[in-house]
């Protein structure tokens, strides 16, 4: 069995580091999957262009920081959210609203294909605008140097005891956490959030009490896209960016929503963390470091297959 896992896996600090890294990235996965969940629960469709919103979010940050070097990173992230929100809203109005109004035959098939079509268009628009070469955003945040003994930071890295954690990921995870918190606050504590939930539970009843389901659809799709865009915006400083970067990202969100249960908000949060940790452990323990990164996504696929095999409704799923 030893050949199956890398030697380093035996050491506890290494494992702990892998788990922490997995949680850091898992928070961002959760953010993205939350967007997909929001779309699914309100519109009852899966957006196959979710990864492209992620990709665009990243490119917006890149473009802003590339052209205006003095702009603070957070502003760029905010702009990414605005842009992806707008793209989502416009697309929903043009292509998904006719579906909600019953102007489209075979709505289930249409929804899959038209969102996939949007993905196709967005990928090539960005290829046209940005070119095929990978773009990299310089770290746009540096830590103040602190030393609390157990917790120590340098400008780029945070040390938890002896465990180093890359600063850009921590920054990304913190923004993602803030966004998650804001989103959950919005969903559970504001009138609009309640309206969204009402629509997701019973469209007709919601319409009767004076909520316009069509507007809620637009809002949900735009917000969902925005969450993916945010995830991209915070991760663009971690990975290099090409127009196809959204495809594996979509695949990950799909794994998460199926794992967590389609339409379940806690499911997408927990699912994201689980996927992050599993990927991180799997990759860290893969015997051949040269191919480890390529297998990062395979673990997700294995989880996907297992969930479909054992419990297709997922961890917290309502019946599909």
């Amino acid at each position: 069995m030893e050949w199956l896992i890398a030697e380093a896996c035996g050491s506890f600090p290494y494992l702990l580091r892998l788990i922490l890294e997995g949680l850091l990235i898992g928070v961002i996965y959760s953010l993205m999957a939350l967007g997909l969940t929001l779309i699914f629960s309100v519109l009852n469709i899966v957006s196959f262009s979710h990864g492209e919103f992620y990709m665009i979010g990243g490119y917006v940050v890149y473009t802003v920081l590339h052209h205006f070097k003095q702009v603070p990173g957070l502003v760029a992230v905010f702009l990414a959210a605005v842009v992806t929100f707008l793209i989502g809203a416009v697309f929903e109005r043009l292509f998904l609203q006719p579906m909600a109004k019953g102007q489209v035959d075979r709505p289930n098939e249409y929804a899959i294909l038209v969102t996939f079509g949007l993905a196709f268009v967005l990928q090539f628009v960005m290829l046209g605008l940005m070119g095929p070469f990978p773009k990299k955003v310089p770290r746009f945040f540096s830590f103040p140097e602190i030393d609390l003994g157990f917790l120590r930071t340098t400008r780029t890295t945070l040390f938890l005891g002896k465990i180093p954690l890359p600063g850009s990921r921590i920054f990304a995870a913190i923004i993602a956490l803030i966004a998650l918190g804001a989103m959950l606050y919005f969903m559970y504590r504001t009138w609009t959030g309640w309206a969204l939930q009402a629509v997701s539970q019973d469209r007709n009843a919601a319409a009767v009490v004076g909520i316009n389901p069509l507007n809620m659809n637009t809002l949900a799709f735009a917000l969902g896209g925005m969450l993916a865009g945010l995830a991209g915006a915070v991760l663009v400083s971690v990975f290099s960016w090409v127009p196809w970067v959204g495809v594996p990202a979509s695949a990950k969100s799909f794994v998460i929503i199926v794992l967590g249960g389609m339409g379940s908000i806690p499911g997408s949060l927990v699912g994201g963390l689980i996927l992050g940790v599993v990927e991180s452990l799997g990759t860290g323990c893969w015997p051949n470091p040269a191919t480890a990164q390529a297998y990062r996504d395979v673990f997700g696929l294995v989880i996907f297959a297992l969930v479909l095999l054992v419990k297709p409704t997922g961890l917290f799923g309502r019946k599909l």
Partner: peptide
């Protein structure tokens, strides 16, 4: 099927 195959294809 759509969800699984897209993940399968890319991976």
């Amino acid at each position: 099927l759509a969800l699984f195959t897209i993940a399968f294809a890319e991976i």
